[in-house]
Design a protein around this nucleic acid. Structure first.
Lengths: 114, 114
DNA sequence: TAGCGTTATATAAAAAAATATATAACGATT
DNA sequence: AATCGTTATATATTTTTTTATATAACGCTA
């Protein structure tokens, strides 16, 4: 139990006065929907239940100014989901911040010593 | 639902290969033990159960190189707990990082716009 | 119009986490 | 040696969260 290797880690998110609206998990969900065109497939890939994915999307749609996902049921393939312009902006801007945060973590990586 | 105010927020912690060992909550716990000399009182102040506080302390004691809290039972007052040198260093160093992180958040505060 | 796979939604079941309760150990103080 | 308030620990209960199950709606396709 001597000399453990300490690393600083953390996470960032976007919030409104009503609470958290965007974080790493939700952004990944958006990206997977963008790639697969399906809420269901994105949920399977991330090993979360469809309900959980849907709840997250619904919450984002209602709290990110305008919808990030537009979904349709029925039709070819049974239905589909697409990321809106607003959603794409959300992904892009969050990654920008995420990258800055990574730099921050890297810079302070060896600043914790007991 | 238009023009919500977006704020970036987040949290940092210290981890070893075995997982998280120190974060804002645990540091606050250490500080309250330092001030009160009692695990129990610190737990009450933070509205957590004694068990939860004890588990956190135990985990820190076992994973922060050397103990951060030394506790005694019996005696005057029924018992007591004191923060070790190692614990004081942990508090101090975490606050140093925490302050840097606050600056980071403030600097990037208005960088998310949809 | 029957079938398909998905979205949407509610409800039930299961799992996990938090909390409460109980009890013993402890040592200075009286 | 009895009392006190705390630490230490186990067990039980409650609460919360997560996951599973079921069912309906939908619109293209064949």
């Amino acid at each position: 139990m001597d000399k453990p290797e300490f690393k600083i880690n953390g996470r960032i998110w976007i919030e409104t006065p009503d609470g958290k609206v965007l974080g790493p998990g939700r952004v990944e969900l958006l990206e997977r929907i963008k790639a697969s065109g399906s809420i269901r497939q994105a949920a399977l890939q991330m090993k979360m239940s469809y309900k959980q994915a849907w709840d997250l999307i619904n919450h984002m749609n209602e709290n990110l100014g305008s919808p990030v996902i537009i979904s349709h049921r029925g039709g070819k393939g049974g239905g589909n989901a697409v990321v809106t312009e607003n959603g794409l902006k959300a992904i892009e801007q969050f990654y920008f911040l995420q990258n800055k945060f990574r730099e921050f973590l890297k810079a302070d990586d060896s600043e914790f010593r007991l």
